[in-house]
Amino acid sequence: MADLLDLVLDAHGGLNRWRKARTIHGKGSVGGLLWSSRGQEGIFSSAEFTLDVQTQSLTYHDFTGTGLLGVFTPDRVAIEDPKGRVHAERSAPRQSFAGHGPDTPWDDLHALYFGGYAMWNYFTAPYLLTRPGVQVEELEPWEAAEGGWRRLRAVFPDDLATHSREQVFHYDASGLLRRHDYAAEVLGAPPAAHYTDAHTTASGLVFPTRRYVVPLGEDGNSLSAPVLITIDLAEVNVT
C-alpha cells in the first residue's frame, strides 16, 4: 500500500509540496443531470472557488449573485456579502438531507454543502489520503480498457465531510487518478464512478481538468449514462 500511495503522491506533485500549499483557486463549469433533478440547474455553470488545502473549507465566488460568497465548512454553510453580512445560513448542513428521495428539490444551501465538500475532496486528493484518521489499503488491480489500474481503498473518519466513509481510487501506471468510486450518502448512496482526465500542473501540483460521474453497476463496471455530474476546469492556481 505504501508503495502505491507514494507513487500517487509523487505523480501529483509530491507530499512536501502539498504540505506547503495553502490555497487552491479554480475556475470552471459544473453541470450534469444531478443539478436539474434537484431544481438547481445552472447553479455552478460558472464556478469560481477558493479552498483551504490544510483545513476543510471552501468559498464559491459570485454564488447565486454577483459579489455573493458561498461559504462551506463541514458544520456550516452560508451565503454572505463581501462585508460579511449573512443572507442565508445553515448549521449542521448534512442533517438537512435526512428523508430526501431521489428527486427531492434542493435549496441553495443544499447545493452549496454538496458542491462545497465534494470539490474540496476532489481538489485536495491525493493529499486527502494522508490526513489523520484516514485508513488506506491497496486492493487487487482493476482491468480497465486502458490497462490494469491499481486501486486504493480509503476509509474516512466521521469528522470529514465526504461522499461516503469508504471510497476506492483507481490509478494508472504513472500514478495519476483515473477513476474514483463512491456512494454519496446525501443522495441516498447510489454507487457512482467518477472519471478524470486531462491533467494539468499548477505550482508543481497536478490536477485533472476534466471529470464526469456516471452510475456504477453491481458488477463494478460503470454505465455510459446518465452523466450525473461534469466538471470542466478552465483555470487553477495554488498558493
Rank of each mutant, 00 (worst) to 15 (best):
E48N: 14
T50L: 13
T50I: 15
T50V: 15
L51Q: 09
L51G: 10
D52P: 09
Q56Y: 06
T59A: 13
Y60L: 12
Y60K: 10
H61G: 01
D62N: 15
D62S: 13
F63I: 10
F63W: 10
T64Q: 11
G65N: 12
G67Q: 11
L68Y: 07
L69T: 11
F72K: 13
T73H: 12
P74M: 04
D75Q: 11
V77K: 02
V77L: 03
A78C: 00
I79N: 05
E80F: 00
E80H: 08
V86M: 06
V86K: 07
H87S: 14
A88Q: 13
E89P: 09
R90N: 07
R90E: 09
S91T: 14
A92G: 04
R94N: 06
F97L: 10
A98W: 04
G99A: 10
H100G: 04
D107W: 05
L109F: 03
A111R: 04
L112H: 08
F114W: 10
G115K: 10
G115N: 05
G116F: 01
M119G: 00
M119V: 12
N121P: 03
N121K: 02
F123N: 06
F123A: 03
A125L: 11
A125T: 15
A125E: 06
A125D: 06
P126R: 07
P126G: 08
P126T: 02
T130I: 07
P132W: 02
G133Y: 04
V134F: 00
V134E: 04
V136F: 04
E137T: 12
E138I: 04
L139P: 00
P141T: 07
P141L: 09
W142R: 14
G147W: 11
G148W: 11
G148E: 15
W149S: 09
R150H: 08
L152F: 13
V155Y: 01
V155P: 03
F156N: 10
P157H: 08
P157F: 07
D158T: 12
D159F: 04
T162A: 12
S164W: 11
S164R: 08
S164H: 13
S164A: 15
E166R: 05
Q167E: 10
V168H: 06
